[in-house]
Nucleic acid binder design. Structure first.
Lengths: 334, 334
DNA sequence: TTGTAGGCGTTATCAC
DNA sequence: GTGATAACGCCTACAA
C-alpha cells in the first residue's frame, strides 16, 4: 500500500508538499499540485486515517449506541444520524448494547481509545466513565437521545412523550370512549413512564375515570402486544379502546383482536405511537402519534457537530414535535 | 488523556512493560502486572487505538455497506454482523449507500485508509477499486452478501432465491390456484431476477400457465406493493393468488386488498418472502418463505474472520437454507 | 523478566 | 512555495 513517502518520491517533491496538496491545496503551486495528484492516482494512494488521526487527535467518526437495531424506530434513528454525519464527512460506528451496561461501556471504550470522537446514545444507561463526571467542568462528547432519566447534564434530544401520549388519549376520549385499556412498555424506561403519565393525563383531562385493571404491562414488541391483548380479553372486563405505547405493540394487538373475532374499529379502537411505516399498512391502518425517529437522529448528530465546534456552549436540549395521525383503527363509539 | 508513558512512570516501569501487561500478561511478573493495572485504573487509561492500529496495521473493525437500514431485512443483517463481530472484538462501522456507486466508493475509502480492515456489502454495486481487480492474485477483504451478479470472485453468502421463490409458487399451485399474479421487485437486482425465475419455475412445475399480464412491477417497499395491487385490480383480469417478492410488499398488498373489500385468503391468497417479524402479525398472518437475514450477517462476518486468518483459502461461497412458513394468508381455492 | 529504541504514516512547525 | 523534522502513542525485536 502506497504511503505519502511513495507519492513524494513519485512526484519529486517532499512529503510535506504532498500532505499540503491533499489538505490545503490553495497553499501549493498548481503545477506542483498536479504532479502530486497524478502520483496519487497512479499509485491509487489513500491517506492512512490511523496515522492522520493519531497526529490530529481526531477520527472523524462517532459511535452510536442503541439497544438493538431491528426496531424500525431505532433503525430510522440510526439512518438520521448517518445522513447528517455523511454530509459532514463523519463516519458512523454502530454499537449494540442490548440494554446492558457492560456492552455500552465496551463501546464507550472506543471514544476513550480515540477510535471515535464522540458517542450518541439511545439507551437508558450512561457509560460508567461518564456517569460520575461533572460534565460542566470536563466536557464529554456524549449526546443523549430520547432517554433522559439520568442526572448527567448531557446535551440531549427527545420528544415530549407526556403530551404525545396525552394526544392519543385525548383523541380516544373525544370519540366517546370511556372504557379504555392500555398496553404499556417497559417500566424501567423513562419514556415508558412518561407515555403512561400522558395517557392518564389525556384521559383525565376529558373527565374519564381510569380502570387500573385495564392498564397492563407490555414490552414494546409485537409479541408483547399480542400477549397483553390475550390477557385483556381473559379479564372479561368490557372495553372499547386500547391505547398502546408504541406501534409495534399496536400491530400485535390488532392482529390478536382480529384472531379473536373482534373488529377494529367497530368493536374496539386501537392507537399506537411512533407512526412507523408499517402503521399505515396495518389492517386497518393504525391511528398513531408520529414521532419521527430519523429527526431525532439528525438532531442528535447536529448537537454532536455543535459540540465539536464549541463544547461549552452547545445546545443543551432539543425537544422535537409530535403529531396525531388519524387512520382507520379508531372510530366513534357506537 | 493519560498515555502509556504516564502509566509507565506512575507504575515505575518501562512503557514496554505496560504494553506487555496489557496484551500479553503472561509474559510479565504478577506483581509488576499488578502495579501496572493499578496505574491504569487510577489514571483511567485506555490504549489509543489509533496509535495501536497504526503500529499493528489493523483497526479491528469492519465496515458494512447497505443501501438503507430501515428495512427489517437489512437491519437484521446488520444485527447478525454485529453479534459475531462483538464476540470477536471487532467493531462495526455502518455505511449507507442508497444504492449509489459513489457513496459505496466513499465508504470503501475507509478500508483503503485503514480505518476498517474489511468490508461487507449488501448491495448490487462493487467498490470501484475492487471492480477491476484480480482477486485471485491480490486478495481483497471484501465479502458479498445476497447479491452476486458481479463477476468479481469474492467470498459471498446468499440464499438460493430461485428455489425459495419456487417454494412459494409450489405452495400456491398445490392449493389449486391457477390464476396467479405476481408483484415483482427491482429488475436491476439479481435477487429480483432470481425470485422471478423461481416463481415461474414453481408454477410451471405444477403445470400452470402463466399470464404475463398479471406479473407486474414492484419495488420492495410497502408503497410499491400497494400501488401494484391497485394496478392489478384495475386490469379487471381475475386472479386468486398473488406471489410477492418480499414481505414488505405483501403487507402493502394485503392492506390494499382489504381496503378494496377483497378478503384474504377467501378471495385471494397472498404470499411473501423474507418472513419478517411483521409477517406473523399481519392481518391475516402472512405465508412467507423464511430467509433469515441475521444468519446472512453472521455468516458474512464469519467469512470475514476466516479471511483474516487466511486470505487465500477462505471459503468462497455459502448458501443458506430457506423454509416455507404457512400462515393464514393462503388457502385452498374455493 | 524487563528495558531500549526504531518505526508505523501523518501533520504541522519551522526554516529556507 | 517548499522542504526538513519533530511529534502523535504504541508495539516489538533485540539487548540486557
Amino acid at each position: 500500500m502506497a504511503n505519502i513517502k511513495d507519492i513524494a518520491e513519485h512526484a519529486g517533491v517532499s512529503i510535506a508538499t504532498v500532505s499540503r496538496t491533499l489538505r490545503e491545496p490553495h497553499k501549493v503551486k498548481p503545477e506542483t499540485a498536479k504532479k502530486v495528484m497524478e502520483a496519487v492516482d497512479s499509485l491509487s494512494y489513500r491517506t492512512n486515517m490511523l496515522a492522520s488521526g493519531l497526529r490530529t487527535q481526531r477520527s472523524d467518526s462517532v459511535i452510536v449506541a442503541v439497544p438493538d437495531i431491528s426496531n424500525p424506530f431505532t433503525s430510522g434513528f440510526v439512518q438520521g444520524i448517518e445522513n447528517i454525519a455523511r454530509e459532514n464527512g463523519i463516519k458512523v460506528m454502530l454499537g449494540i448494547t442490548e440494554g446492558k451496561q457492560e456492552l455500552l461501556d465496551r463501546h464507550y471504550a472506543m471514544v476513550a481509545g480515540k477510535q471515535a470522537d464522540g458517542m450518541i446514545i439511545l439507551d437508558t444507561n450512561i457509560p460508567g466513565p461518564v456517569k460520575h463526571l461533572d460534565v460542566q467542568t470536563s466536557p464529554t462528547p456524549v449526546i443523549l437521545a430520547c432517554e433522559y432519566n439520568s442526572n448527567a447534564q448531557l446535551p440531549r434530544v427527545r420528544f415530549d412523550n407526556i403530551e404525545a401520549a396525552a394526544l392519543a388519549a385525548d383523541h380516544i376520549a373525544k370519540l366517546g370512549h370511556t372504557k379504555v385499556a392500555c398496553v404499556g412498555g417497559v417500566a424501567s424506561l423513562q419514556m415508558s413512564r412518561d407515555r403512561q403519565k400522558g395517557f392518564r393525563l389525556g384521559l383525565r383531562r376529558q373527565g374519564i375515570i381510569i380502570n387500573e385493571t385495564l392498564f397492563v404491562e407490555g414490552g414494546y414488541t409485537l409479541e408483547s402486544g399480542a400477549k397483553a391483548t390475550k390477557y385483556l380479553l381473559s379479564l372479561d372486563i368490557p372495553f372499547t379502546a386500547i391505547l398502546c405505547e408504541n406501534d409495534e405493540m399496536a400491530i400485535g394487538v390488532i392482529h390478536t383482536l382480529a384472531k379473536a373475532g373482534i373488529r377494529v374499529p367497530e368493536d374496539v379502537s386501537v392507537t399506537g405511537m411512533d407512526n412507523l411505516r408499517y402503521a399505515e399498512y396495518a389492517n386497518p391502518g393504525l391511528t398513531s402519534v408520529a414521532l419521527p425517529s430519523s429527526l431525532v437522529g439528525e438532531q442528535a448528530m447536529r448537537l454532536m457537530l455543535d459540540y465539536y465546534i464549541d463544547p461549552a456552549s452547545s445546545v443543551r436540549e432539543v425537544v422535537l414535535g409530535h403529531e396525531l395521525v388519524i387512520r382507520n383503527s379508531t372510530a366513534h363509539i357506537n
